[in-house]
Design a protein around this nucleic acid. Structure first.
Length: 335
DNA sequence: CCACAAATAT
DNA sequence: GATATTTGTG
């Protein structure tokens, strides 16, 4: 076993898109729930209403299209502390209502990079501990939900099964497109054997989740804010990766064409977990503000979410595909 | 409550 | 077609 992951972390880190390579786009994702909760609207606070852009939605309570989060010209800026100005949630009046209730999240697009992260997480957790929740926590990707991971995991398992099935024979000349994604990441040896204990798997050194994008600054700002609220914040520990809405690979090898799409997502419970049963990894606490709504899933596991600062939605993407919006977590760039 | 797998829906 | 959601089970 050439488990020379003595530096898997280093490798992992390196394989991440470099700040320069990524972020050709300046879109970020803000949890819709969060956005709504904070009642974020265009900084142009002129009318507290006008929830309806010229977009004629179809019937249904199409929750306020997650879009319209247009940033002024200066998105990059600091922590412009949005929120706040919308203090009138009490009456809410017109816009208020309870839109966030029926909000649907956008379909997650599993880019090779994201999948890689997924595989890495699973690999290092050991099959034993690789359950959706844990994986999700380890991946530390903002916006990723347990369901997202569970769904993907299910598919991935089927893929693994299939792979074992035809280890020696078979033509296997054509793998479903699905397999392409999975094939983009090497399957760790132990995945194929049901016999492997995570013993040798060096568990991560506190794993400091990547921090790449320049938006990191924003996260830093957010973190600072959180710190303010929660003085117990530790030093640079982990930053969640922010999810950027992107779609259609730019000009790379062309992996996933802009075909699938989805809706938007919200945070819910992608916080961090604590060593509930087994003390697996270190817990973490970031302070975040969860506003009304959402019963907040018990704090059995202090989960928090990192507030993303800038929020811009990609309107064009919706067009390209007939109305659906594709959300891909962090830019794609084959590694 | 959570994980899982299969079926079903979008 | 890829992902989400539902359903049933452990």
């Amino acid at each position: 076993m050439r488990e020379d992951d003595s530096d898997w972390f280093a490798r992992w880190e390196e394989e991440l898109p470099s700040p320069e390579e990524l972020m050709p786009i300046s879109q970020s994702l803000i949890s819709p729930d969060l956005a709504l909760a904070f009642d974020i609207r265009t900084p142009n606070h002129g009318n507290g209403n006008s929830n309806q852009p010229h977009h004629h939605h179809h019937h249904q309570t199409t929750p306020p299209t997650p879009s319209q989060l247009q940033l002024p010209s200066s998105q990059a800026n600091s922590s412009a502390e949005f929120a706040a100005d919308s203090a009138d949630l009490g009456s809410g009046g017109a816009a208020g209502d309870e839109p966030a209730r029926t909000l649907k999240r956008p379909r997650l697009v599993w880019t090779p990079q994201l999948h890689k992260r997924f595989v890495d997480a699973v690999a290092h957790l050991g099959i034993k501990n690789a359950v959706p929740k844990t994986i999700m926590q380890l991946m530390s990707v903002d916006g990723l939900t347990r369901e997202n991971v569970a769904s993907h995991l299910q598919k991935y398992r089927l893929y693994l099964k299939r792979m074992q099935g035809l280890s020696s024979g078979g033509g296997a000349g054509s793998d479903p497109a699905t397999d392409r994604l999975f094939a983009s990441s090497p399957v760790p040896a132990h995945f194929l054997h049901p016999n492997r204990v995570p013993s040798s798997d060096h568990f991560m050194p506190s794993f400091v989740p990547i921090a790449t994008l320049q938006q990191q600054q924003q996260m830093a700002a957010a973190a600072a804010a959180a710190a303010a609220a929660n003085p117990h914040l530790q030093p640079p520990q982990f930053h969640r990766q922010i999810a950027a809405a992107h779609f259609g690979s730019p000009t790379n090898g062309g992996f996933s064409s802009p075909t699938s799409n989805g809706q938007f997502g919200s945070p819910t419970s992608n916080g961090f977990g604590s060593p509930t049963t087994n003390g697996k990894f270190d817990p973490s606490f970031l302070a975040v503000r969860q506003t009304q709504q959402q019963p907040i899933q018990r704090m059995s596991t202090p989960s928090l979410h990192s507030p993303v600062s800038n929020y811009v939605e990609d309107l064009e993407s919706a067009n390209a595909n007939g109305g659906r919006t594709v959300l891909t977590l962090f830019p794609t760039r084959d590694d």
